[in-house]
Simulated assay, not measured.
Amino acid sequence: MKPLTQKKIAEIAGVSQPTVSRILSGGAGVDEDVRERVMEIVNQNGYQPHAMARGLRTHRSDTLCLAVRRGRKGFAKDPFYAELILAVMDTAAQNGYHLSVCSSRTVGGERLFYDALFRSNRVDGLIILESLEHDERIERLREHRFPFVLVGRYDNSPDLFTVNNDNVGGMRTLVRYLFERGRRKIGFINGLPDLTVCQDRLLGYRKGLEDVGLAYDPALVCEADFGEPGGRRAAQRMLKESPDAIIALDDIIGLGALAAVKQSGRRVPEDVALAGFNDSLFCPHTEPSLTSMRLNVQELGRQAAEMLIARTKDSTLAPRQVLIPCEIVERGST
């Protein structure tokens, strides 16, 4: 039986040979259904790259990859991602590297992406976002000893290279800030509970309540889907508990909360104060303007890229965990 070639894979999958090559090398710009179809053929037939191609693993590609969990629509609407990608891209370019950005909406698509990544030599290292409490990506990257940097936290592991915002400290500061302005029934709209960023901000919220002597009330915590509609629905549920302040996990959820509060006939900030997190570009332009915790996204991206570049050049580097402080920006909503 003749060995399977990329040309044959392309014929079976009904795509071009360059598309197969791009998928096998971990490249971007391919529809996820096409990627899954090609990788299913590859895995079923045990395809292995030509020995010469495998030998290319010893050479550098001068390309970094930033991988996000959300689908393209999910992260395209969030200004945080645009700012972070630009910061990583600028730092990579200053150091002679290219940047590839990949996204996956499904667990299957994500697994196929990493299958292709480990087969190829097209990417020197990876920056990953939105870690889960139990994250298959991180475990696979560890197993393959593939260079990567996590923007976030994972199980407080000292053996990882990480760059993170001070999510716990920032949320504690927001709770204290609202308490000092007379708020005593402070609610929190969180995101998905298995994301470590959501766990950390919830922890900061609870510690903030403890700092100022307020009891934790589970009825004042709601989980929301990411996005403005999710924030609106969560705030509508929370308003039944009559909070005098609401903190949103991020500014886009905060937009939804702002709309819900106003639709309920309550005034912001007179009846309900509202604060977000990330200090997105639109925060000064809402009505009223949105108080938010400002992240230094430029520094986050720069340090993540520099850390990854250093690691790809020297595999003996000791792991580092960098925590970047944030600061509150007071506006009309509080």
Rank of each mutant, 00 (worst) to 15 (best):
A318F: 01
D78Q: 09
N45Q: 09
V329C: 02
N121E: 11
K8V: 10
V88W: 13
F75M: 15
E133N: 03
F282L: 07
L195V: 09
V15C: 10
R57D: 12
I246C: 06
N190I: 08
D194P: 04
L86M: 12
R54A: 10
A51V: 15
I328C: 01
L317R: 13
P269Q: 07
A51T: 14
P284H: 08
G213K: 03
F113R: 11
N121T: 12
P325D: 14
A275N: 06
G265I: 05
E241W: 11
G191D: 02
T291V: 09
A82H: 12
C326G: 06
R137L: 05
P325G: 08
R183H: 06
E241F: 13
R119E: 08
E180C: 03
R111T: 12
R57K: 14
V151E: 11
G26V: 06
A248D: 05
R137E: 05
D31K: 04
D314R: 00
R294Y: 14
A219W: 07
R37G: 03
P269V: 08
G55F: 10
S104G: 15
S131C: 11
R266M: 10
S16E: 14
R72M: 12
P288S: 04
V68H: 04
A224N: 02
G46T: 06
R267I: 14
I41T: 05
C222N: 03
G55C: 08
V20C: 03
R153D: 01
A259D: 14
C102G: 12
V30R: 01
V149D: 02
Y205N: 02
R206N: 09
R201E: 00
A304P: 10
T106S: 14
L255S: 14
Q17S: 08
A235Y: 12
P158V: 03
L84C: 05
T312E: 00
N95C: 05
Q303P: 02
E210N: 07
S289R: 08
I189W: 06
F75D: 12
Q6C: 05
Q263A: 15
D271I: 13
M39H: 00
R60C: 04
R294E: 13
E330D: 15
G152V: 09
D78Y: 00
C222V: 08
V107R: 01
A116E: 00
L129S: 04
A10I: 05
